[in-house]
Every structure is written in structure tokens, then in C-alpha cells.
Amino acid sequence: MVLLEVSNLKTYFYTLRGIVKAVDGVSLTLDRGQTLGIVGESGCGKSTLAWSIMGLVPPPGRIAGGSIKIDGDDITKMREGDVRSKIRWKKVSMIFQGAMNALNPVYKVADQIAEPLLYSGAPRDEAYARVAELLEMVGLDPKIGERYPHELSGGQKQRVVIAMALIMEPDLVIADEPTTALDVVVQAQILNLMKELQRKKRRSIIIISHDLGVVSELAEKIAVMYAGKIVEYGTAEQIFNNPMHPYTQALIRAIPRLTGPVTKLEYIPGSPPDLRSPPPGCRFAPRCSKVMDICRSEEPVLEELEKDHFVACWLYRR
């Protein structure tokens, strides 16, 4: 059953120095209970896509086109008041990138987690009982609710942030780089916690990371973004075992591995384009080792090359 359907989404930042086309024609669907991974280099538009789904694009950004349907409701057409009362935190919630460092230092942890519940009119004791339950579920002693953020370790803070995202029991949780600031041991613990959410609670998750290893821990489906667009989209098996887009292929070859032979790492020359003036045609063309003439003038579209496996690249045109 489809929970989220994003079609041809365009989210632009209207800055004084030009229009940053951070998300530029992205389409994807997510079924209930499914986990989608979004990978791509810094600045390719991952967070912007997530903010769009939350209906929280920061100014000077706004949604410039397309639709985002959550359970059939197109939030781009809804009034802010309705999104707030019906969708945000209730159906979709988000663990913001860097959120653990943005916890309010003057409020106790339990008060911060309980806030949206209290705001929606739940009685105090019920709300705090729920907070205690959640803290336990994310692997913390409920007594931690009495502490202030600075009294917690990085891993504990991240667990609190996850609890905050779960308090309204949303169907979809978007986790934007949830482990980036953490050490590997704590990262593994947090990822295990998210696996539990997946299994026991059948929640849908969108996991955003620049680290393909982290994404492989959770995602059944993976979307690879480059310069504001999805360039490849498929099952985790397809993306890792049979990547077809030259960017995905290069990205996977560039990762240092912990096992197997130590071969020379490959890298992608150059850097991603400025999103105010992306190159015409395929945005990856200036860095692509397989570039052809057509790539520099015409834009390839996502095509389904095998079942569930979409690629936007002229190499495969039929």
C-alpha cells in the first residue's frame, strides 16, 4: 500500500545570487512498512527533499512544482494549518540532521519529548507515561527524562531525538544522517534500534546518508541523488550488486572496504555542479568517464530498465 508518493517535485531556494534548484524533478513512492535509503554527496538535495516532505522548507526556499501525497493527501496543496494539525509529526516525522546538538539546553529531556503530545491536548500523566515508555524503547533508562541535554552522551542524545520523532506514532519517520556525528560503536547501536522500529513497529523509514554502508544497514530500496535529481533508483540488491548509472558505479568503487583485496581506490574527478547553474543535459556529464555527445545537450530521464530498477542515463537509451 502506497504511503508516500512524490511526483516531479521541485524545491528551489530563491537567493539573492540566483535560484538554487536543490530538488529538481524528483519522483518516488514508498509503501507502508518499507524503508527507503537516499544517498548522494553533500549538497545534492537530500535534506531539502526531506524538508519538503515535512512541509518545512526553510526560506528563501519553497516548493516550485510537483506534488507530495501522504496517504493520498497532497500536502503541497494543503493549508499550513491543516498540515500542522493532520500530517506533520502525526503521519510523518523527522530526525533532523544535527538535531542532537540542537536540543533545547534549558528544558529537561522528558519535557522536550512530551511537548507535541501536550500541545495536542493529551493529559499530563498520560503524556509522561508515554515518554517513559518511549525512552525505554529507545534503550534509555526512563530516569534520563529528568536530565538536561548537556548531561547526556552523544549516543544518548541521539536516542532522545529518535524518541521525539516517535512520540506521535507517525507512519513514516525520516532520518536525516542520524549517525553521522557518532562513533562507529554507537552508530551500530543506533542502527540496531532503527532496525527494531522497522521490524516490530512496521514503520516506514526514509534513511538519508552520504554513507552507503549506513544505508545498507536499513534500506530495501535506494535512491541515488546527484545535483538535485534521482539518477538511479532500485532495490538495495540492484544498487549494490548491479549499479548501472556511472555515478553510482563510481561511488561504490570509491568506498574503502574493510574486507577483500586492497585495490587502488577510484575517485570521481571534479566536484558536483553549482545548483544555480547546472550544466545542460546530464548533470553528471562534466565528471562522467562515459560521457557522449548527447549527454551534454539533452537530459536523460529515469527509465525502468529491469523490474523496479530505474536509471537516468543515455548509455541505456532504447
Partner: peptide, 12 residues
């Protein structure tokens, strides 16, 4: 060593 996620789809 055990904590590091090597990018493999079967990890999930």
C-alpha cells in the same frame, strides 16, 4: 571491527 557497516545489501 564488528561495528563497521560494510556496504552490502544483506546487512539489513
Amino acid at each position: 571491527v564488528a561495528a563497521i557497516p560494510d556496504p552490502k545489501p544483506e546487512n539489513r
